[in-house]
């Protein structure tokens, strides 16, 4: 709040009753709208935490799923394998795309790439899953597998990583680039010694957000990763793999309490993971803003 802003509780003098009422109603509506959202968020967090804590026990983290009981070790492992597999594919490509848009973005192709990447963010994730299903699972004969699931997640995270990297690299002051060029540095030297190192924390933030999205996705994995009660044996194709979001979706509709416990625990783990990543990325972004020299 700047010094010029009058205090909210300023006593209006000589205002008509109608104007005063309108003001009161307006601010009340704003407060109520905010409270509705805060209440919904609190209800979700508290609900997930309470049910999840009630269901949580050590065996959940150390045992694999048996039928509709047992533990979630296979799903935890699968979620991590798929998410990192997705990042492994999406990060190099996405950052390269970001470099192109930030460093060579004045060309004719760049607006098209930017536009298509932005539209791709809005593509329903189930559509991506179905695409990878027909292409990889069926046509290439990979069956439900780590490779198919990771590719689906990579396609979903690509536009986020691309656009957030572009933004991160753009924030590096142009003066630094000019200085490097004046000293005789070429394109690559400028990118790898100046732009990327300075933009790294902000690029990392984008990657963290993509990780959070990957961990929380369900629809694109249902028909690409499948589900497995067992630990992953390291095969990239023809071996289905479990993941936490599947456990939430599939086990909550089973009639058994032990199945519900798995779903609640999985929901707690996924939500915690996503929350922690989101907070971490916020902090990383704040840190990167402090680190960057002001242009």
């Amino acid at each position: 709040m700047t010094a010029s802003a009058p205090p909210l509780n300023r006593k209006p003098q000589g205002l008509s009753l109608r104007r005063r009422l309108t003001d009161l109603l307006g601010w009340t509506a704003c407060t109520v709208a905010f409270l509705v959202l805060a209440a919904a968020m609190t209800s979700i967090l508290v609900g997930v935490a309470r049910r999840g804590m009630g269901a949580m026990h050590w065996g959940l983290l150390t045992e694999i799923t048996q039928g509709t009981g047992g533990g979630l070790l296979n799903a935890i492992e699968g979620t991590l394998v798929l998410a990192f597999g997705g990042l492994l594919l999406a990060v190099p490509l996405g950052v390269a795309c970001g470099i192109y848009l930030a460093e060579f973005g004045q060309g004719k192709g760049a607006p098209t790439v930017r536009f298509l990447a932005d539209v791709m963010v809005g593509l329903p994730s189930i559509v991506v899953g179905y695409f990878v299903y027909i292409l990889a699972v069926e046509d290439l004969g990979w069956n439900f597998s780590v490779a198919a699931g990771s590719i689906a997640l990579a396609i979903i995270s690509l536009p986020y990583i691309c656009r957030s990297s572009e933004l991160a690299i753009r924030q590096v002051p142009q003066d630094l680039r000019n200085a490097a060029r004046a000293l005789g540095a070429g394109d690559n030297r400028v990118i790898f010694s100046i732009a990327l190192p300075l933009a790294l924390p902000a690029i990392f933030t984008g990657i963290l957000l993509a990780l959070a999205i990957s961990v929380g996705e369900t629809a694109p994995l249902l028909y690409t990763a499948g589900w497995s009660n067992y630990l992953w044996t390291g095969h990239l194709v023809r071996e289905p793999i479990g993941y936490l979001t599947y456990a939430i979706w599939a086990f909550i509709t089973e009639p058994f309490t032990e199945a519900h416990a798995l779903a609640y625990a999985a929901a707690l783990l996924v939500t915690l993971f996503v929350l922690i990543i989101s907070v971490a990325s916020r902090l990383a972004l704040a840190a990167s803003r402090r680190r960057l020299p002001h242009a």
């Binding site: 905010f34 959202l37 805060a38 919904a40 968020m41 209800s43 979700i44 609900g47 997930v48 959070a212 961990v215 929380g216 996705e217 369900t218 629809a219 979001t245 939430i248 979706w249 909550i252 779903a263 929901a267 996924v270 939500t271 996503v274 929350l275 989101s278």
Partner: peptide, 16 residues
């Protein structure tokens, strides 16, 4: 805090 609603996974919304 309120914008975290966007980060909550779809399947958790379904569960809730």
């Amino acid at each position: 805090f309120v914008e975290m609603l966007a980060a909550i996974p779809s399947v958790v919304f379904g569960l809730w």
